[in-house]
C-alpha cells in the first residue's frame, strides 16, 4: 500500500498513469452524460409547479455539488503536500482550483438562469446562490495568492495554508448564510433540487452527478499532467519521454 503510494507520488509514474486513465474517464463521462441528459430532458415528466424550468437542475445540482467537493479535495491534497512534502499533491491542489472555480461559475450561471422564470429576476439573495458566490471568492483568492508568488514551492505552501483555512471556514459560511436568510423570509417554496423528488426525475440526476465527477477526474488528469510538465521541465525523465514519443 505504502509502496504504491510512494510510487504514485513520483512525477514520471503519475504522468504516465494520468495519461492512461484519462481516455477511460472522459469517454465514460461523456456516455453517462448523454444517457442522463436523455433521461432528464426527455423521459422525466415536467414538474407540476416549475414546468420544464426544473430541468436546468441536471446541470446546476452536479455543478454545485462539485464546486464544494473540489474545494475539499483541493484542501486535502494541499494538506498532504504540506505535511508529507509530496510535490505531486501540491500539483493536484493547484490543478483543482481552476476546475472548481469553473464549476462554481456554472452553478451560479445556471442558478441565475433558473431564477429568471421562477423569481422573475436574474439574481436573488438565495442562500444557495449566496454561498456559491462566496465559494467563488474563496477560489479566486486561492488562485490570486498562488499567482502572486514567482517561486512554485512558496506558492504551493502559501496556497496550502489558505486552502486549509478556507476549508475550515466553508461550513461556517454555509451555516451563516442559511441563518442569515432564514431571518428575512420564510422557507422558500421554490427550491432548486428539492430532496423529495420523484424517481423518474431522480435517476438522471444521480447519473449526471456521476458523469460530472468522472468528467472532473478526466480534466484533472489533463491539468495534473500540465502541472507536472511545468514543474519538471528541466528533469531528465521528461527528456527521455519526449524522445520516446
Amino acid at each position: 500500500m505504502w509502496l504504491w503510494f510512494y510510487k504514485l507520488a513520483s512525477p514520471p509514474y503519475a504522468y504516465a498513469i494520468a495519461a492512461r486513465w484519462r481516455p477511460w474517464l472522459l469517454w465514460s463521462a461523456l456516455i453517462l452524460m448523454v444517457i442522463s441528459a436523455y433521461g432528464g430532458l426527455v423521459l422525466a415528466p415536467p414538474d407540476y409547479q416549475q414546468k420544464d424550468a426544473f430541468r436546468i437542475m441536471y446541470v446546476h445540482v452536479p455543478s454545485a455539488t462539485l464546486s464544494l467537493s473540489v474545494y475539499v479535495i483541493m484542501a486535502v491534497a494541499a494538506g498532504i503536500g504540506l505535511i508529507w512534502r509530496i510535490k505531486l499533491a501540491h500539483a493536484v491542489a493547484a490543478a483543482c482550483a481552476p476546475i472548481g472555480a469553473w464549476f462554481t461559475v456554472l452553478a451560479l450561471a445556471t442558478g441565475s438562469i433558473w431564477g429568471r422564470p421562477m423569481w422573475g429576476t436574474w439574481w436573488e439573495w438565495d442562500p444557495r446562490l449566496t454561498s456559491e458566490l462566496i465559494q467563488l471568492f474563496l477560489y479566486l483568492g486561492y488562485m490570486a495568492l498562488r499567482s502572486s508568488f514567482d517561486d512554485t514551492q512558496r506558492a504551493d505552501r502559501a496556497g496550502a495554508i489558505l486552502a486549509i483555512v478556507g476549508v475550515v471556514n466553508v461550513p461556517i459560511v454555509k451555516y451563516s448564510v442559511v441563518w442569515w436568510n432564514s431571518l428575512h423570509q420564510g422557507p422558500s417554496i421554490s427550491k432548486l433540487g428539492a430532496p423529495s423528488i420523484a424517481s423518474p426525475m431522480l435517476w438522471p440526476l444521480l447519473l449526471m452527478m456521476l458523469a460530472f465527477m468522472l468528467y472532473f477526474a478526466a480534466v484533472l488528469c489533463d491539468r495534473v499532467r500540465a502541472e507536472i510538465l511545468r514543474r519538471e521541465r528541466n528533469a531528465s525523465w521528461l527528456a527521455s519521454v519526449a524522445a520516446g514519443t
Partner: peptide
C-alpha cells in the same frame, strides 16, 4: 488588494452574525 481578496470572503460569517 490581494489581502482584501483573501480575507474578506473568510470574514463574511463574522459580518453576518455581527450586523444581524
Amino acid at each position: 488588494v490581494l489581502l482584501a481578496l483573501l480575507v474578506l470572503p473568510l470574514e463574511m460569517p463574522v459580518l453576518i452574525f455581527g450586523a444581524r
